[in-house]
Design a protein around this nucleic acid. Structure first.
Length: 228
DNA sequence: GCGACAG
DNA sequence: ATCTTGTCGC
């Protein structure tokens, strides 16, 4: 079982938990900028369901963005205890992700998540949830918007436009490659939005999605193939 | 009430 | 997420 807090809870309890933990998000990197630049180990996490939907495969890959190679990976399989509900994704995916992370020997500088961080109705998406529970730096990198609106960013790699919800900027739409759809980057925990964007950009060498996310996706998909 | 809705 | 073959392009 996972520590931290229960995962087999009701919908109302999950929402209250998000409101409670939301105040613990740290929107800056406590480490110095110079120190963060030296850290090249970035992890990506992802999950996939078993074909019958009763199990979750979680995977994590640590990517060295300087050498551009995978240096470590870990995975886990857990029972699915919570349904997929937009806004409550963390309660379905995090148990498997956390168990996968516990299998790592190295400590990455930051973890990129396949989903939102602050760009969430209650400002507490999966990336925030993971970062707060483990007290680590985390980044949300989603393929679609959940809440808020934004203009289309310029078509060149690196161009971005803010995601606005009400009167606050909750993330950015970021063009990671020329001519591809943008990804939606937001703060998870212990990073600034600027550093989150920088990390995502340095990890998108060739494709739309950050390399650590692509590798983690590949890992869990392969696990399901061989165990279903 | 109606539409939107990460993976 | 998933249903799904070929096909256009580097």
């Amino acid at each position: 079982m996972c520590a931290f807090h229960p995962w087999d809870i009701t919908l109302d309890e999950a929402i209250q938990l998000q409101r409670k933990l939301g105040s613990l998000v740290v929107m800056v990197n406590p480490e110095s900028e110079t120190a963060s630049l030296k850290c090249s180990l970035i992890a990506g996490v992802d999950t996939v369901e078993s074909s019958d939907g009763t199990a979750i495969y979680g995977g994590v890959v640590i990517w060295d963005r300087e050498k551009e190679v995978v240096v470590e990976q870990s995975s886990a399989r857990t029972s699915a205890l919570f349904p997929y509900i937009p806004g409550l994704l963390a309660f379905r995916e995090l148990p498997a992700i956390i168990r996968a992370l516990e299998g790592l020997e190295r400590t990455p500088h930051a973890v990129i998540c396949d989903g939102h961080g602050l760009a969430h109705p209650r400002r507490f998406g999966l990336a925030c949830h993971l970062g707060v529970l483990l007290n680590i730096s985390s980044i949300g990198c989603a393929k679609n918007l959940l809440t808020g609106n934004c203009d289309q960013p310029g078509h060149e790699r690196g161009e971005a436009s803010p995601i606005i919800d009400g009167n606050e900027i909750i993330g950015v739409a970021l063009r990671t490659q020329r001519g591809v759809k943008p990804v939606y980057v937001s703060i998870g925990n212990r990073v600034s939005l600027e550093e989150a964007v920088s990390i995502v950009l340095t990890c998108t060498v060739k494709y739309r999605l950050p390399e650590p996310i692509r590798m983690a996706h590949r890992l869990v998909t392969e696990l399901r193939r061989g165990e279903s």
